[in-house]
């Protein structure tokens, strides 16, 4: 018997369960876009270099073009479609809208997912390459523009909306400051 080239999986996306049969070669990105009509997640390079396909996997940001769909079973997947609270935009989304943190909008879902996770990483005290005091007990460093730029550098924007994106992330971070980290 020929080996099977597809499997049934159940994916937990934005709090909903989707059961489908996927080709083993199918990336999480392609499963979202081509099979589940969750096309908010974008394909910019399909090789993990641009960040446009960033989603959250168990709360951490990943590039979904480098994840196989079959390997995402049992994980909590959050895509751009699941970032807002119903009709209420997430503060990061609202800040992108208000401060024009985009132009063509194609990298935007990835930038926003990345920013949402990045703010949580920062709040949890994770250092970055530009963090001066990296001792575990130092706690989160000040969220300077340099920190934001460094932490967001995996997300390319060819329209070059970087200045506004950094402003938007900084603005969105302000109400989050002081909140308990989940």
């Amino acid at each position: 018997m020929a080996p099977s080239t597809s499997s049934g999986v159940t994916l937990n996306i934005n709090g909903e369960k989707y059961t489908l049969s996927v080709d083993h070669r199918t990336t999480l990105l392609d499963a979202l876009r081509e099979r589940l009509d969750l096309t908010g997640t974008k394909k910019g390079c399909d090789q993990g270099q641009c960040g446009a396909c960033t989603v959250l996997l168990d709360g951490r940001r990943v590039v979904s073009c480098l994840q196989f769909a079959v390997a995402a079973e049992g994980r909590e997947i959050t895509t751009i479609e699941g970032v807002a609270d119903g009709d209420r935009l997430h503060p990061v989304q609202q800040a992108f809208l208000d401060l024009d943190g985009y132009q063509c909008g194609y990298c935007t879902p990835g930038q926003i997912c990345s920013a949402v996770a990045m703010l949580q990483e920062h709040a949890a005290g994770w250092p970055s390459a530009v963090t001066e005091d990296v001792r575990p007990e130092a706690g989160p460093p000040p969220l300077t523009t340099d920190e934001i730029r460094e932490r967001m550098s995996g997300n390319l924007c060819r329209c070059a909306a970087y200045v506004s994106i950094v402003d938007a992330v900084a603005k969105a971070a302000t109400p989050l400051e002081g909140e308990a980290v989940a």
Binding site: V83, L89, Q94, F96, L97
Partner: peptide
């Protein structure tokens, strides 16, 4: 702000 902005930040703008 961009008229299509809400669609672009929520992933509902269809390319």
């Amino acid at each position: 702000t961009r008229v299509e902005g809400p669609e672009k930040v929520t992933g509902t703008a269809r390319y």
